[in-house]
Design a protein around this nucleic acid. Structure first.
Lengths: 221, 221
DNA sequence: CCAATTCTTTATAAAATCTTTAAAATTATA
DNA sequence: TATAATTTTAAAGATTTTATAAAGAATTGG
């Protein structure tokens, strides 16, 4: 799942880390001599676990040094449980500070949380229930499935959904969505509404309701 | 510096959080009634602190719910110090789990570490699957083979790939990649896209998708 | 300064979307 | 119930946007 590097001078701990993480599907490389870290391509790792107190090199300095060419999460594993050390560690480029003795499940949970975060997409969203507008991708997603809408169709949906419950005339919709008014736009909107409905119907949704004589509205469910 | 939301039913803790964080330059909003969270635009926050045990709503559920439309770091503050709760919390979308009573400096250090990370640019590595950008050599490598792109072509690819999933208009792409705006740049970008596609096609890749009427986006297969 | 590469423009073809038209269906109301 | 108003629907036409090709301008490296 992920490439993880663990650096610690205690073999027993490395064995434990190796066991826990590889059981969860990760590929783990261990180093017991911190000096060896210079012979390794750190760029290839998705996450690094670092002991703080190691003979010949302290983890803080090491972390600070490798931060120049490493973007991935770096987590300290340490017996130094005082607050000052923690603050110092986090202030020197680390992303987490796990105190020994730590629970096996805690280690795994923290590692996975950091990995998950690394892959978290930063999209601007607008969502209610199982309906989601991905404003960055300009996509309407229903039940984790993308509904293939044209630009105009999408814009109409987003506009109505943003103001769900409110009724808008065809004219208003046209003006709000396309930005200007026009001679005969009612039939255009009617057309779009029809097409949108047909597409959403396939996902089992009918969110656009006709308010007779007035217009349309997106109903909240 | 950052907009932070803190949710806790204990006023004393909120006051403390407020004090610590605002002293460090952050803008802090506090909520003592978790139900109020529905009346707040969560998108505006850079980081959220959440108590786990609150009357009427538990933080785990809340976190899981808001994760649908919130990308920012969410940190639990909790008196539940057992490992199971920690694992459960981190497994439900949280990014950290801070046990009460926590040190003031620890809170600040963790908050800042998360914020710093959020702004950490990936300057070393950008890759997915067998597609890799060598950012220092300015090369796109697919299946261990270098794709011969011109500088402009490469920059467009890197920009789109960095923001994969997001749609950008031709104008936006031009501005972001070449740094300035221009009278007629649409056809230039269209041209580059065409050439990029032709080159990537030879490696069997078609990562750039046209979003009709809006622009282009990089899709991760 | 020249040659090669890259970027930009122009023109045309192709594709997708939007708009119009008109008829059918539905709803409101007299 | 009949009539008028409104919405729905289908299909064709118009428009807009993108893709492609080729040629000209600018830039770069030797």
């Amino acid at each position: 799942m992920a490439n993880i590097l663990a650096v610690d001078d205690e073999e027993a701990i490395l064995v434990m880390i190796q066991k826990i993480l590889s059981k969860d599907g990760h590929s783990v490389k261990t180093i017991s001599n911190p000096a060896d870290i210079d012979n390794i391509k750190l760029e290839n790792f998705d996450l690094i676990l670092l002991d703080v107190m190691m003979p010949g090199m302290d983890g803080f300095t090491l972390c600070n040094r490798i931060r120049n060419y490493v973007d991935c999460p770096v987590l300290f594993l340490t017996a130094k449980t005082d607050e000052d050390s923690l603050v110092y560690g986090l202030g020197n480029g680390a992303d987490d500070y796990i105190c020994k003795p730590f629970g096996k499940m805690e280690l795994l949970a923290r590692v996975n949380a950091h990995l998950r975060r690394e892959h978290r997409e930063h999209f601007v969203r607008l969502s209610f229930g199982d309906t989601e507008f991905n404003l960055s991708a300009k996509q309407l997603i229903i039940n984790n499935e993308v509904v293939r809408l044209t630009k105009g169709e999408y814009e109409i949906c987003e506009f109505l959904a943003r103001n769900k419950g409110q009724v808008f005339s065809k004219e208003q919709i046209y003006e709000k969505v396309f930005g200007f008014d026009r001679e005969s736009n009612d039939s255009t909107i009617a057309m779009h509404i029809k097409n949108i409905r047909a597409k959403l119907e396939q996902s089992g949704y009918s969110p656009i309701k006709t308010v007779w004589g007035i217009g349309y509205k997106w109903i909240e469910r």
